[in-house]
Simulated scan of single mutants.
Amino acid sequence: MKATRKLGTLTLMITLIGALLSACGSQAEPSTTTAEAKSGESTTSTQAESGQSETKSYTDSLGHTVEIPVNAKRIIFTGSDLGDLLALDVKPVGAALGIIGDQIAYPELLDGIEDVGDLQGDLEKITSLSPDLILLDAGGSYYEENQYTLLSKIAPTVTYDRLSTNERVKVFGDILGKEQAAEDWIETYAEQFEQVRNQLDLPTGVTASVFLQLGKDMYVMGNSALAETVYDTLQFTPAPKVKESLIDKNEPFANISSELLPEFAGEYLFVLTDLSEEERNNSDSIMTTDIWKSIPAVKNNKVYYLNTKWNFDDPITKERLMDELPSILGK
């Protein structure tokens, strides 16, 4: 579509995900009905030779069948949704903190985790941490099979895809032997958010859009990161143009020109930005333009501004966002 320019990586977007949409990452793969169908995981427990740790056979998202520890102790995580592991009470020894460290909603939980570089990981740093399991994000366009080969020489390496929050949590629960913890989190979050949704008393059958502002650029989100909460949890309906141009095509986000903002805008707008209210009101801000002011949601005071740290969809971020939503929405 001439109006939209796809970004090469969701990392840029978050830088929102600063690294905030750092969390989001690049091109998403087409979704399937279940996490297992999507990534092809299957596990078979086996007992290793006497004197060695117990292992199990695991087939990852790209079809590699790997012998991994049943109870891994020194994990490297190269993705942007570190909260997926922390929610299961698993703290890796190393993670790609350079991508997410300054952008996430839970910085205090990073204590004790070493930075291993970008989403592919620094080989020397990873080796120095003596990992027994490496979890490699293979959902982005930057993924290279050669990197998997190199990492797998250091420790058993498992790839995973960028799925919905619940699907990812189930996948990591399967890999790490935390299946019950994964199910417990999914059930508890659903129950707690139902209570919050009732408290918010939101309208039904209305459309919404999620925009991300980075500098002078504006991005519209598909159904990833914050948008997943807006559409799947808060139960807003995606604006028609968002559904047609992004969600139906499995696009996580797109950069759009200012003149097209009204076409992608729903009846409610959720705008991710690190600009203060004063900065948004400056003369060179897109929020002061006639195009922005012409959007019905703007005219009707149905615009909600959020810090870009909320553009991740890991469990920790979603829990903390749930606590903040009444304040954000003025309820």
Rank of each mutant, 00 (worst) to 15 (best):
F193D: 01
Y189A: 04
G101I: 02
T165S: 12
I76Y: 13
T11Q: 09
A95V: 04
L88P: 03
E124K: 10
L269F: 02
E251Q: 15
W185L: 05
E36I: 10
Y160V: 05
I316T: 12
L109N: 13
A239R: 06
A297N: 10
E191P: 00
A190N: 14
L212S: 09
P240C: 12
A265F: 00
P315R: 12
A254H: 08
L86N: 09
V298I: 02
N301A: 14
G101P: 01
K216D: 13
D115G: 12
L272K: 06
G79E: 01
I76M: 09
Y305F: 15
A155N: 06
L151G: 00
N300H: 09
I175N: 02
F253G: 02
P315S: 14
P156Q: 12
I291P: 02
T43F: 15
A225T: 11
A37E: 14
A72K: 01
L7G: 08
P326R: 11
V220N: 09
F264A: 11
A181T: 08
Y58L: 15
S283F: 15
E263F: 07
K153D: 08
D84M: 15
R162F: 08
L21F: 13
Q235L: 14
L214A: 04
V196D: 04
P238D: 10
T237Q: 14
A72C: 10
S294K: 01
L82P: 02
Y304N: 13
L129Y: 13
V298L: 05
P107D: 10
V93R: 01
L151V: 03
G83Q: 07
G330E: 08
I126P: 01
L135W: 06
G140K: 04
S39D: 14
S276M: 11
A297K: 06
V158I: 12
F253Q: 11
I247H: 08
L321Q: 06
L325I: 02
R74S: 11
L16R: 14
T317F: 07
L133E: 09
D314N: 13
S45K: 08
P107E: 07
Y305T: 00
D184G: 03
Q147C: 03
E183N: 11
D132G: 07
L119A: 05
V210A: 06
P326T: 07
A155Y: 13
L10P: 00
L214H: 06
E36D: 12
A105I: 01
A95N: 08
G40T: 04
A225H: 07
Y189E: 11
A19L: 07
Q213H: 06
T288K: 15
P240M: 08
M221G: 04
I104F: 02
E49G: 07
D161M: 12
N146P: 00
P203W: 05
R5Q: 11
Q120R: 14
I17E: 05
L202N: 06
A87P: 01
